[in-house]
Design a binder for these strands. Structure first.
Length: 277
DNA sequence: CGTGTCACCTGACAGC
DNA sequence: TGCTGTCAGGTGACAC
């Protein structure tokens, strides 16, 4: 569900309405969600604090409060953050509620309970959550073609799809945007990273950045659960070329889109358009 | 270093 | 209708 474009859309939807709001109370009802502290600390640390900022790295969100306090959230598969009026009935799998001083509530909903929360100083939450081990941000100006090529060259035997999904190498790509990026670049997902010639490395670098930027522009991909901070769905699902289109004709060449397994993940590919290296 | 499998949970869906 | 098996966008641990 939430990959970089979805998490960024959530960040952008929440930030203007959370900034400057003070917390009247915070209640965690699924204690296992909080990975690095006792459940009671969720309430005690957040009580009376004011939202200052929200930063995204990869698929993580870090909420900033005064006194160096941070709340780090990872939505994993089905997590949702929603800002709703307190009069709106709680969803079935609601796991925390943060009451704001304007009567709104920030709520966390997660059917599969895979989400993760960390609370504490920036240093501790980033170390404990793995935030500090994330690879570069693919949309950053600082992420160059040379950086990307070096990542491939250092892992020549890795399948390109597995490499792109590895958050330690590049942060934020998930199954949907990897399949779409590889299609746009015309590269077969089983290709070995070291076999991809420089012109195609360039195509892939561009394709990944373009597909993520397009995903953000369309406010994310809603297949099942994903919604932004206001409960609104995205629309990038209507732009997908291969993901979820197994058995249907490729939009470029009319041959049938295949669904295969790569690196243990369901993978969508047009065998005619995507070259194996 | 690389891949495959499992686990964490719940719900949707196919097949019987 | 309802049972069972399979699968799902993420990630880390583990075996080989």
């Amino acid at each position: 569900m939430p990959e970089l474009p979805e998490v960024e859309t959530i960040r952008r939807s929440l930030l203007p309405l959370l900034k400057g709001k003070k917390i009247k109370s915070a209640v965690l009802t699924h204690s296992k969600l909080l990975k690095n502290a006792e459940p009671g600390e969720f309430s005690s640390q957040l009580y009376g604090k004011t939202f200052q900022d929200i930063i995204r790295r990869g698929k993580y969100l870090m909420f900033y409060f005064e006194d160096q306090l941070r709340l780090l959230v990872h939505l994993r598969m089905t997590g949702q953050l929603r800002l709703e009026g307190s009069e709106i009935e709680l969803k079935k799998h609601n796991h925390f509620v943060i009451d704001l001083d304007d009567g709104q509530q920030l709520r966390f909903v997660d059917t599969r309970k895979f989400g993760m929360l960390y609370i504490g100083s920036e240093e501790s939450v980033s170390t404990q959550s793995g935030w500090h081990k994330l690879g570069p941000e693919p949309l950053s100006d600082k992420f160059s073609l040379e950086d990307f090529a070096a990542i491939l060259q250092k892992r020549p035997k890795r399948r390109i799809k597995a490499l792109l999904l590895d958050q330690h190498l590049i942060a934020g790509l998930g199954n949907i945007y990897v399949d779409e990026g590889l299609f746009r670049a015309g590269i077969h997902p089983q290709s070995l990273a070291g076999n991809i010639p420089p012109p195609k490395q360039h195509d892939l670098y561009q394709a990944i950045r373009a597909v993520l930027a397009d995903g953000i522009e369309h406010r994310g991909t809603t297949l099942n659960d994903y919604v932004d901070g206001f409960g609104q769905t995205g629309s990038f699902q209507f732009q997908l070329q291969v993901y979820g289109r197994a058995g249907q004709p490729c939009r470029e060449c009319e041959s049938t889109v295949q669904r295969i397994k790569v690196a243990g993940r369901s993978t969508h590919v047009c065998e005619a358009c995507q070259v194996m290296f």
